[in-house]
Each structure stands twice: as C-alpha cells, then as structure tokens.
C-alpha cells in the first residue's frame, strides 16, 4: 500500500480518535465514543500491516498474546478494581513506548542519529519509563500491596530531583554524543524507572486516581514522541490528544476532589477539618 493512501487512512483514524474522546465526555455518547476509539485503533493497525515488509509471524504472535491477556484482564476484573487495572494498562503502554524508541535506536543508521530524532527518542524513553514504573506503583498502591504501602524516608525531594536531573542529563548526552546513544539511552531509562517509582510511592492512595490520570497523559506524550522518531502521523496525533486531554482531565479531577495538583504530587495531606471555605 502506498504511503499516501496509508496517511489518508491514518487521517480518518485521527478524526475518529477525536470524535471518540469527545464522545466519552457526555453520558449519552460515551459508549459510541469508546467504539469510535476502538475502530480508529483497529483501522490504524490494519493499515500499518498493509505497508508490508514486516516479519508477520512475530507480529501476529505478539498481537494474539496481547489480545488474549487484555481480554482476560478486562473480563475477569472486579468492578471495584477497575482503577488499578487502568493503571496497569497505562504502565504497559508506557513500557511499549520506551521499547519502541529503544528498538528504533538499535537499527538507526548514522543519518538517523540527528538532533531531532535523538531528542524524540530520548523523550519517548524518558517519559515512557517514568510512566511504566510510576503506573506499576500506582497499581500496587490501589491493590494495597503491603511492601509499598507506607514507604517513607528522608530527603525524598532531593533524591527525586537528582534522579530527574540525572536522567535528563543522559538524554542530553544521547543527543550530544550520538556514537554512544544506545548506552546513554539505557542509563537514562534506568534512572527514569527509579524516578517513576519514587515519584508515586510517597503519594497517598486517595490521590491515586489523579496520579493515574496524570500518568495517562504522560503515556500519550511518550507515544507522541515515538511518533516523531518513526515519522508517523497517527502516533503523533493520537498520542498528543491523550497527552493534552489527560492533562485537562487531571485538572478537572483535582477540582472535583478539592485538591491542588502540587499538593497531590508532593504528597501534602489536606489538613483535617479544613475545607474549601478556608480559602
């Protein structure tokens, strides 16, 4: 299939993604919106497969395994456990993004190792890795796993800041020293994975929905960055739609819970007895 035709069908998928997200914001259109979204995904995947030249055995094995696991999770889950399942799925999406960026780096030619490409690869890896480990911790918190329940130690903010600066530094090094991009990519992802854990582990369980919503926004941005690496429009559009709308939803959820995002992220508890009327 020609790239022109593929891009036109990607455009149709992008429109369906927009209509789907919009539909999900109203009770009457929500079910239809979700169907638009899944139809768009199906369309984007099928039309990509028609590009040809792929190792189809590996692809169909991956699609089959993923679909079976996804269906089992979605069917078996208790109604009350749905938020943590969303966190888990979100983590998987983040992981997929940093794996895609890593895979692309492994077969990149010298011409591919330019500044825009490497920047996009670094962003996809960094955001994807934070999303992955952060979402797994959010899942664990909601699942009330004992070993991550009340973790506390000194200098959390300082350690977080060091991890954040360190991982960004490795990302910058990727761009500046392309011949070692692979090595720096791995180091960056390792620090980002640690950062994701520490960013979420101190946040209380009640604030988790807001955190998951923010991580959902991140996973969209990671996918969008992967789209820049591959020069793929539907990845960029769908990813940035989720990134932007996820941010708005996070804000809406904060308002609904009467919490500020900074308080959620830095783990400040609301003083007891204090209400909105205090300010």
């Amino acid at each position: 299939m020609s790239m022109e035709l593929t891009n036109i069908i990607y455009m149709v998928a992008a429109v369906l993604f927009i209509l789907g997200l919009k539909g999900l914001t109203h009770p009457k259109t929500a079910v239809r919106g979700n169907m638009y979204g899944s139809a768009a995904m199906f369309l984007a995947v099928v039309v990509t497969l028609f590009l040809g030249g792929m190792n189809y055995w590996v692809i169909f094995a991956g699609l089959a395994v993923g679909a079976v696991i996804g269906v089992i999770f979605a069917m078996k889950i208790q109604m009350t456990a749905m938020p943590q399942l969303v966190a888990l799925f979100n983590g998987f999406g983040g992981a997929a993004s940093f794996l895609v960026a890593g895979a692309t780096l492994s077969f990149a030619t010298d011409a591919d190792l330019n500044v825009p490409n490497l920047t996009a690869t670094a962003l996809s890896g960094l955001i994807g890795a934070v999303t992955f480990s952060g979402s797994l911790i959010a899942f664990g918190k909601l699942q009330e796993l004992k070993f991550i329940k009340d973790v506390r130690f000194d200098n959390q903010q300082l350690i977080n800041a060091c991890l954040a600066i360190g991982s960004i530094l490795f990302g910058v090094l990727m761009v500046l020293v392309p011949q070692y991009a692979g090595l720096f990519y791995v180091l960056m992802c390792l620090l980002a994975l640690a950062l994701g854990v520490l960013l979420v582990i101190f946040i209380g369980g009640a604030d988790m929905p807001v955190v998951i919503s923010l991580l959902n926004s991140y996973s969209g941005l990671a996918a969008s960055a992967a789209g820049f690496v591959l020069g793929n429009t539907v990845l960029i559009i769908a990813g940035s739609l989720v990134g932007a709308s996820g941010l708005i939803l996070t804000r809406i959820m904060c308002v609904a819970m009467n919490r500020s995002l900074t308080n959620v992220l830095f783990g400040k508890m609301q003083a007891s007895g204090e209400s909105a009327s205090a300010d």
């Binding site: 009770p27 749905m82 959902n216 996918a223 789209g227 990813g239 739609l241 939803l249």
Partner: peptide, 30 residues
C-alpha cells in the same frame, strides 16, 4: 474537546483515553 465532564465519567474517560494511548502499537509494528 474536554470541557465539562460529569464525575461519573471521569474514570471511563481516563480509561478510554488510556486505551487510545495504546496507539504506540502502530510504532511497535514498524
């Protein structure tokens, strides 16, 4: 596109847009 969302739809919207972020699948295929 996200303006007023009734509270009952917060989680489904988050879940639905999370599914859309699975678009990275297209990147994985490539």
């Amino acid at each position: 596109i996200i303006t007023k969302v009734p509270p009952t739809l917060h989680t489904p919207l988050m879940s639905g847009s999370n599914a859309i972020s699975g678009i990275t699948l297209v990147g994985a295929l490539l």
